[in-house]
């Protein structure tokens, strides 16, 4: 089994049922929420990629995670069928989502930022 590369990049904030409203729905600016599970192999493979993407975004877009094994009700509320699923929020509303693994930094960056790109191509 190959060793997982050392964790680099930004830490991902974990939000749960108690903090989801304030940290996601009432927050200003674009937020991507990863619905994941620590026992999910795809989530595990994605983690270093996600951290690197978070570092590249450098706060222009926040990234948070919801552990579906702990917050199953929250996952049900958002109709999460597979992990990882990314749901993009702005001003309390869902503006996009993406299911499944995206193991490349470039493709994951595109997926997480696309919903926030305006008609003239400018992000955020």
């Amino acid at each position: 089994m190959a060793d997982r590369p050392p964790a680099v990049g930004a830490e991902i904030e974990t939000v749960g049922a108690a903090s989801f409203e304030t940290r996601v729905l009432e927050a200003r600016g674009p937020i991507a929420v990863e619905f994941m599970s620590y026992g999910c192999s795809h989530c595990r493979a994605l983690e270093p990629v996600l951290r690197e993407v978070a570092a590249r975004l450098d706060g222009r877009e926040r990234i948070a995670r919801v552990n579906v094994a702990v917050d199953a009700d929250l996952a049900a509320t958002y109709g999460i069928r597979v992990t990882p699923t990314f749901v993009m929020f702005r001003d309390g509303g869902e503006v996009g989502r993406s299911e499944g693994p995206h193991p490349q930094v470039a493709s994951l960056t595109t997926i997480l930022t696309r919903p926030f790109v305006s008609g003239d191509g400018a992000a955020w």
Partner: peptide
């Protein structure tokens, strides 16, 4: 292993939940 990174860190501060699953 479970799903609580903080609970694992209480066992050992150097214990990372992702590593534990790996």
């Amino acid at each position: 292993i479970g799903d609580d990174p903080a609970a694992l860190a209480r066992l050992n501060p150097h214990l990372d939940i992702w590593d534990a699953y790996e």
